[in-house]
Amino acid sequence: MHNFEKRRDRYNAFASFENPLVNLSFELTVPDFRPYCKANGLPPFHFFLYHVLHALQGIDNFMYRIHQGEVIKIDDFMASYTVINQDQNLNFARFEMSADLNEFIARSVASKRIAEASEKVINTSEALSEYDQRRNIHITCMPWLKLNSIEHPIYQHKTYDIPSLAWGRFSEPRDDGKLAMTMAVQAHHGFVDGYHVHLLAEAISAGISRTMS
Score class of each variant (00 low, 15 high):
residue 105 I to S: 03
residue 152 H to R: 01
residue 36 Y to K: 01
residue 30 V to M: 01
residue 2 H to T: 11
residue 185 V to S: 00
residue 4 F to Y: 07
residue 166 A to V: 10
residue 179 L to R: 01
residue 99 A to C: 07
residue 32 D to T: 04
residue 177 G to D: 10
residue 16 S to F: 00
residue 172 E to L: 00
residue 157 H to V: 04
residue 33 F to A: 01
residue 120 K to A: 14
residue 133 Q to W: 03
residue 210 R to M: 06
residue 140 T to Q: 05
residue 85 N to H: 09
residue 91 N to Y: 13
residue 45 F to H: 13
residue 98 S to D: 15
residue 77 F to A: 08
residue 174 R to Q: 09
residue 30 V to T: 12
residue 62 F to E: 07
residue 80 S to K: 10
residue 60 D to C: 11
residue 72 I to F: 07
residue 4 F to M: 07
residue 13 A to K: 11
residue 26 F to C: 06
residue 163 P to I: 12
residue 172 E to W: 00
residue 64 Y to F: 13
residue 160 Y to M: 08
residue 101 L to Q: 15
residue 115 A to T: 03
residue 19 N to E: 03
residue 51 H to C: 04
residue 102 N to L: 11
residue 64 Y to N: 06
residue 113 R to W: 08
residue 212 M to S: 07
residue 99 A to R: 10
residue 46 H to V: 02
residue 35 P to S: 05
residue 13 A to E: 15
residue 41 G to M: 08
residue 22 V to Q: 05
residue 63 M to S: 03
residue 45 F to A: 11
residue 201 A to M: 04
residue 122 I to S: 11
residue 106 A to Y: 05
residue 175 D to K: 13
residue 185 V to G: 04
residue 51 H to R: 02
residue 86 Q to G: 09
residue 163 P to R: 08
residue 70 E to S: 14
residue 98 S to E: 12
residue 198 H to Y: 09
residue 109 V to I: 12
residue 136 N to I: 06
residue 132 D to Q: 14
residue 56 L to N: 09
residue 169 R to L: 12
residue 24 L to V: 15
residue 29 T to I: 07
residue 154 I to T: 07
residue 71 V to G: 09
residue 21 L to N: 03
residue 179 L to Q: 03
residue 173 P to Y: 03
residue 75 D to H: 11
residue 193 D to R: 01
residue 37 C to K: 11
residue 208 I to K: 00
residue 203 A to V: 06
residue 135 R to S: 08
residue 151 E to S: 15
residue 40 N to F: 08
residue 75 D to G: 14
residue 171 S to Y: 00
residue 104 F to K: 06
residue 110 A to N: 05
residue 25 S to P: 08
residue 192 V to Y: 00
residue 14 F to H: 07
residue 174 R to I: 00
residue 173 P to F: 05
residue 120 K to F: 04
residue 106 A to C: 09
residue 133 Q to M: 14
residue 83 V to C: 08
residue 124 T to D: 08
residue 167 W to S: 02
residue 209 S to D: 10
residue 49 L to G: 00
residue 195 Y to I: 07
residue 101 L to I: 06
residue 16 S to N: 09
residue 90 L to E: 10
residue 89 N to K: 13
residue 23 N to T: 03
residue 129 S to R: 05
residue 204 I to N: 01
residue 44 P to Q: 04
residue 83 V to Y: 06
residue 126 E to P: 00
residue 98 S to Q: 10
residue 80 S to P: 04
residue 3 N to G: 03
residue 17 F to M: 15
residue 211 T to N: 04
residue 172 E to F: 05
residue 106 A to K: 07
residue 66 I to A: 02
residue 128 L to A: 14
residue 108 S to R: 02
residue 101 L to D: 05
residue 40 N to C: 11
residue 158 K to P: 02
residue 143 P to M: 09
residue 89 N to D: 06
residue 147 L to H: 02
residue 96 E to T: 14
residue 124 T to A: 08
residue 82 T to L: 05
residue 177 G to V: 01
residue 5 E to T: 10
residue 23 N to I: 05
residue 149 S to F: 05
residue 9 D to G: 06
residue 107 R to A: 13
residue 1 M to T: 15
residue 13 A to D: 07
residue 137 I to R: 05
residue 153 P to C: 11
residue 193 D to V: 00
residue 32 D to F: 01
residue 16 S to Q: 13
residue 100 D to C: 01
residue 70 E to C: 14
residue 47 F to W: 07
residue 109 V to C: 03
residue 133 Q to S: 09
residue 197 V to M: 15
residue 97 M to K: 12
residue 69 G to F: 02
residue 170 F to E: 01
residue 193 D to S: 14
residue 78 M to S: 14
